[in-house]
Design a protein around this nucleic acid. Structure first.
Length: 388
RNA sequence: GCGUCGGUGGCGGAGCGGUCAAUCGCAACAGACUGUAAAUCUGUCGCCCAUUGGGCUACGUAGGUUCGAAUCCUACCCGACGCA
């Protein structure tokens, strides 16, 4: 059971402050939700994660199904006990993997890769590949769900709405997501429309498959087509029983595009229910996301970039793989009070990266999470003061 | 002192007469990364111009053989090992 309460609505934008109550505590929204795909924020212990101001985590159904398997998580007492995380949690449905391991992998594109950019590398490839009703190499998408081979064992596996919800039920996070298809940017409208209709049917099946008291969010798709996005928002928004909404898929080729999509979608969603934007949260996006009316959003950027040596600081990005930092006696970020910045200097962190020491990635993960959480908290403060 | 093997680009290490400025790995440098295939991936990596391309100097040093050598021969220098 979850509960959401809007505490304040901005007069300047669609932004709002809220409280999301879960069996594992409250989330002050808007909030960023760091990604713990395999029931782990890579490189960190959960107590270290808690010390970064992180309120909620999202793990992944597909990955946990492959390893260690949902039964292991269930017998551990659910994901919270399993990973020693006392706070709220969500699980993504595996819908994103339908894309990332399917078309995404085949075509070498990410979900935010613009169609233009992608087709510059593969002229006409995307349209042709997808338009003809072909299937990606590694997954087969049917009305029932998605067939794929485990990259771990090579075994044939299947994930559909019923399977995803059953697995998420055993994992036991506070909030689950409906099974959807995250469509590839650059696909034809025709493909998008057919995929959307199927995702809608999957949403109803996901809801019908729920056997637990966990929250369940329906997911709005529709890529960057106005009519499809609106249609999707109306359809998903009208379904009785969802505890909130996810907004997923291709979110436009630019920050303006994302803004536009949120404008199309958000007005059709019940304002009393929480809205979660799936997989977006670069620093530069966050203000737009909030003013667009999003309550929670997840993103791998702070954790992923950290392991690649990038720290986000009050003065912009700092790349710790660069040699000159070996001579810097500054903290990672002068203006930061995180557990890393209060102890370590840039020269040491840079050394750890150049030496391939994993603690370097761990340190920047702590810092980046602290920084992103702080950034979001300051924006919440601005909403509170009526500035946003 | 004699013998054997060896000396290749920042390092390790291929190549053993032409297609070699030289496979590959590491390091270095640059770039990418938005519901994590991701402590990953891509590119550059002798020097000088250039868009394809061209020029120059290079495989211990100095000579030589050959149309042509990192690759064959000779001498020398250096290293490892073995024998005195």
């Amino acid at each position: 059971m979850i509960e959401f309460k809007v505490v304040k609505k901005s007069k300047k934008s669609a932004a709002r402050l809220g409280v999301l109550r879960t069996p594992h505590g409250e989330v002050m929204t808007p909030a960023i939700v760091p990604v713990a795909t395999l029931a782990a924020i890579k490189a960190l212990r959960t107590d270290e994660v808690a010390a970064t101001g992180t309120q909620m985590l999202i793990s992944n159904t597909y990955h946990l199904h492959l390893q260690p398997g949902e039964d292991v998580v269930k017998s551990a007492g659910g994901i919270n006990k399993f990973m020693g995380w006392n706070g709220p949690s969500m699980t993504d449905s595996g819908g994103f993997q339908v894309f990332s391991l399917g078309w995404g992998k085949d075509l070498g594109v990410g979900k935010v890769t613009s169609a233009k950019k992608a087709s510059a590398h593969h002229p006409d490839k995307i349209e042709k590949a997808i338009a003809k009703g072909n299937q990606p190499r590694h997954v087969t998408i049917t009305e029932d769900g998605v067939k794929f081979r485990s990259p771990l064992t090579g075994d044939e596996m299947f994930l559909g709405p019923e399977e995803s919800i059953a697995i998420q039920g055993k994992i036991g996070a506070d909030i689950m997501f409906a099974f959807d298809e995250c469509t590839p940017p650059g696909a034809t409208r025709d493909y998008m429309a057919r995929s959307l209709a199927r995702t809608h049917r999957w949403a109803l099946r996901s809801l019908a498959a729920r056997r637990t008291k966990q929250g369940l969010y329906g997911i709005v798709q529709g890529s960057n087509y106005e009519d499809l996005r609106k249609e999707s928002a109306r359809f998903i928004g009208a379904i009785e029983g969802f505890d909130g909404f996810g907004i997923g898929g291709d979110l436009g080729e630019s920050r303006e595009g994302t803004k536009r999509i949120l404008k199309w979608v958000v007005p059709h969603l019940d304002e009393h229910l929480p809205r979660h934007l799936l997989g977006m949260g670069h620093l530069e996006d966050i203000e737009n996301i909030m003013t667009g009316g999003v309550d929670t959003f997840d993103c791998t950027v702070p954790t992923h970039y950290a392991r690649h040596g990038i720290a986000f600081t009050s003065k912009g990005r700092v790349d710790f793989t660069k040699a000159p930092l070996l001579k810097s006696k500054e903290p990672v970020d002068r203006a930061c009070g995180c557990p890393v910045c209060t102890v370590y200097r840039r020269n040491y962190v840079a050394h750890l990266f150049r030496a391939g020491e994993i603690s370097g990635g761990a340190m920047l993960t702590v810092h980046n999470l602290w920084f992103f959480n702080g950034y979001v908290a300051r924006l919440r403060e601005r909403i509170k003061k009526g500035l946003l």
